[in-house]
Design a protein around this nucleic acid. Structure first.
Lengths: 341, 341
DNA sequence: ACAAGCTATGATAGCGCTGTCATTTCCGCA
DNA sequence: TGCGGAAATGACAGCGCTATCATAGCTTGT
């Protein structure tokens, strides 16, 4: 009997009331001490903490959240972990959360809105304190769930449409536009575009639209396209660059859907002996660190992925309780002139 | 009064009992339906589901977990999100979890064991169904918490030491050893090593040790080192390559702590006009996709990060309830001959 | 025709914690 | 000396769900 007691004590059953009993105080006192809430005398605190440490007591947040009707969970739904930009956003989120005791619960949607809806439902079941999503495209039901939840919602990456609550990101449309202006100013006239699946990556499409507008205003247009099915990758960028030049040898600049693709372009040129910039200029999007390390610095546009995640969290934390009307934070972008365009 | 009721109904208070009341069944019946558990007649199911959909009822998992003393959370503690390998492991974890209704809760330790301990405590408070960690280095307390918890514990990346429960990864020591053998066979004799912070990345050190052993068995040694403070990066790899060659122009092969660094080496050679392989051979570790897309395919060793995450989850799911004695899964590695060494 | 064994449903009692509203103790100051 | 009020603690009633055991109807087989 004695042994059984000890086993039970040590494994499954170290609860608040156990601690309270051994420390000769009420449960609520222990609870207050664990949460640093309410006035507690130093003597009691130490006596209780001694017991806590001895038993290795870890408060059960599930019970706590149920009782207080609030959790310290932040739901995060991102489209993919393969595309480097999302881990970077996650990094920003983690950085913003550091020091708080909020925990992100991360799900991946694979760019599928129905999967996103299912994920949102599943995350909502944990009564998160806030939700962070990528983009502002959601199914009707998902949108409704988000709106009705009343919690803070941050929609990241994109600020081209009105958010439910908070949007943090940049205008991809005007980023594309400014890329176009920049390249026109540098004297390029025969534009090629190398991209990937627009259905998944709607923001790439927005940048393309912006680019076209800039060209059109200058009486120009994209004269050749090479689009790859599926996701962006450096290998795809390499292949599509070869493809583009084969289709239309007159292009003097290739604009890529992102840096992964553009770096593939650089590699193709290096290995095919094509003079970058003189023969073909290359312009990307994102400003990945890698672009900086290339034999020639990649010309691109920096988006601040880390910052987007971090600021989203900060905005949420500013007032966890109430939405304050749609709020848009523009994290901007910055042209990196580089050496490839 | 009527309006107030409706508001309350629609926002905060869509609970099991509410659904049960409107569907004219008991709470437990609704609970069974939501969980697909126990025998339920088709008629009842449909009647209840109609109410569920009408109210937009989402079960509260917090309450559910408390009542059932089990959660569908998987705690994940990784050292970093900056190093591409961990997002890939995460991807594997998500892939393995797909189709189950488990949710990963991810925390980042920044390679700090004390931070890891704090994180483990914090994750444990959610009574996770299992924990996934990187590496087998933990503080004493962390180790104790993990052992005592009784839940499944997977320690990833590394199988060079005995795990608490499950280990999935590869022997970095023998990977390093085999790199050495491979390069010796190819005729290289003057080895340089380019690495990053060993305190953070203990596995890189293991690979180095393995390399040295292979060299030593062949009567060789590493004749020059260039180590960068801090984390690995392509830029650092570039700089350290220049540095290495300046220090000892006789080296004919550089082994890098990982592909990020090695790719930097490739870039340095490309931009300094150094003949890769003829003048300096380059060998990495990880087998990143990017290595394949380079102008010359990177010679390296493939570690299967995605698989490590996926298999860890599968092993855990095999028997969620009980540990079955230490279990080690070797996901192996594979030499990619490539064109740089 | 009736025990045995289904299937479908319900009543009850918590899970481990926190919010709310007391209650007690102790201090400073008139 | 006594009183107002802050500091310290506690009792109690849930939070929203699920485990457990019980109950009612309905087939079966012999």
């Amino acid at each position: 009997m004695k042994e059984r007691r000890r086993l039970a004590d040590h494994k499954s059953k170290v609860t608040l009331s156990e601690v309270a009993r051994l420390a000769n105080v009420s449960e609520i006192t222990v609870s207050r001490i664990m949460r640093n809430k309410g006035p507690i005398s130093e003597v009691t605190r130490q006596r209780v903490m001694a017991v806590v440490n001895k038993l290795g007591y870890v408060p059960n947040r599930i019970a706590g959240s149920l009782a207080s009707a609030r959790s310290n969970i932040i739901g995060v739904a991102i489209p993919s972990l393969s595309n480097i930009v999302f881990p970077e956003v996650l990094r920003g989120i983690h950085a913003g959360l550091k020091g708080t005791d909020f925990q992100p619960v991360v799900g991946v949607t694979d760019y599928d809105l129905d999967a996103e809806e299912a994920l949102i439902r599943s995350l909502m079941a944990w009564k998160p304190a806030a939700m962070i999503l990528a983009g502002s495209d959601h199914t009707g039901s998902a949108q409704q769930i988000l709106v009705q939840s009343g919690i803070r919602i941050a929609e990241l990456m994109d600020i081209d449409v009105e958010p439910i609550d908070i949007a943090v990101g940049l205008s991809h449309r005007s980023a594309g536009y400014d890329s176009g202006r920049h390249l026109i100013e540098r004297g390029y006239r025969r534009f090629g575009y190398i991209g990937h699946n627009w259905r998944d990556d709607r923001r790439a499409k927005l940048r393309y639209d912006g680019l076209c507008q800039a060209l059109s205003e200058a009486g120009l247009q994209v004269v050749a396209h090479s689009m790859v099915e599926g996701a962006s990758s450096t290998l795809a960028g390499r292949a599509m660059t070869a493809n583009l030049l084969a289709n239309d040898p007159t292009v003097d600049v290739a604009v890529y859907s992102n840096d992964d693709m553009a770096i593939g372009g650089v590699f193709h040129c290096l290995s095919a002996g094509i003079a970058i910039r003189e023969r073909l200029a290359i312009f990307g999007f994102n400003g990945l660190e890698l672009g900086d390390a290339l034999p020639m610095v990649l010309s691109t546009m920096r988006s601040n992925r880390f910052l987007i995640g971090k600021i989203a969290v900060e905005k949420i934390m500013e007032n966890l309780a109430h939405r304050s009307g749609p709020c848009v934070v523009d994290t901007g972008y910055e042209i990196i002139a580089g050496e490839t365009a």
